[in-house]
């Protein structure tokens, strides 16, 4: 299978890349890791006239701390996330999730920005970024803007990014309050998207849950922020009753489609079970039991 013809561009800087995006509009597509885009091009579900390969742009790579935030360049690969000492120390949910994405070869190519910006409900980072309160830095020739992850996803492959914009970084607030985090995913096999997955952050104060976020992967048209599930935890001791209540709310906020991964009832039940497991792990990491 060979994709349709296109003109290939390999900009060396962000400025050059956004100039090309501005020039070609909806006829241009950004090539990052390519492992979502290239298969779609082979099937002619995507047929860009201009492919803008951002892999040569050094400014899009790297993981650093910047005044209370962790900043991950959009071109940073999953393999680089897995190998990052900084993330292992300060945001372990990301390398743990990276290990659940695809396989070693694909992780050498796939990027954080691609996973976040692609808009496929099966991508793992959107729910995690929503749960972490992350925001995305989008750049066009006209300037730069920050979009909160929770506001970014509009539908299947529909996001807030404009044709002339490039995602250049993900900014994640450092969780200094001792919050525990967890991402639990059930999938059929290596390389498959989640049947369901849940990202949870949770902080405890005096035996009570002080704050929590719950977000879900691949059980609706976009990643789902379940405020109701979080509300069921906040103020509770995060005992079994509260955990079950939160899982029920997460299931109610799920709207999975029946597909090869199972019927609706099963996938919704798995959203609940992944929520339970992620809450328990986040709780243990937050110093609760």
């Amino acid at each position: 299978m060979t994709p349709g013809s296109f003109e290939y561009h390999r900009p060396q800087s962000v400025d050059e890349a956004v100039a090309l995006l501005g020039q070609y509009g909806d006829e241009g597509k950004v090539l990052a890791g390519g492992h979502s885009l290239v298969p779609m091009m082979k099937l002619r579900l995507a047929a860009p006239s201009h492919l803008i390969d951002i892999n040569g742009i050094d400014d899009l790579k790297g993981i650093a701390e910047d005044g209370g935030e962790i900043v991950i360049g959009a071109g940073t690969t999953q393999a680089e996330v897995l190998a990052s000492d900084l993330l292992a120390e300060s945001c372990p949910i990301l390398p743990e999730a990276a290990a659940l994405i695809a396989d070693p070869q694909v992780r050498n190519c796939g990027t954080v920005g691609g996973n976040c910006a692609n808009g496929d409900p099966g991508n793992d980072y959107p729910a995690i970024m929503i749960a972490l309160g992350a925001s995305y830095t989008l750049r066009s020739a006209d300037g730069e803007r920050q979009v909160v992850a929770a506001d970014f996803y509009e539908g299947v492959y529909a996001t807030a990014i404009e044709d002339n914009e490039l995602m250049i970084a993900v900014r994640i607030p450092t969780h200094a309050d001792g919050a525990g985090m967890s991402y639990r995913k059930i999938k059929r096999k290596v390389g498959d998207y989640a049947i369901a997955a849940a990202a949870v952050t949770l902080s405890m104060d005096g035996g009570k849950c002080a704050s929590a976020t719950v977000a879900l992967t691949n059980v609706a048209d976009t990643a789902v922020l379940s405020a109701a599930a979080a509300d069921a935890l906040v103020g509770s001791a995060v005992d079994d009753k509260a955990i079950d209540a939160a899982a029920e709310k997460a299931m109610a906020d799920s709207d999975p489609a029946e597909d090869l991964r199972g019927p609706v009832e099963y996938r919704r039940a798995m959203a609940g079970e992944m929520t339970r497991r992620a809450i328990r792990e986040a709780l243990a990491r937050a110093g609760g039991s």
Partner: peptide, 13 residues
Amino acid sequence: GKSVKACTIFAVQ
């Protein structure tokens, strides 16, 4: 120095 799948990378890359 990295393993990749050659079916999903363009030769120009």
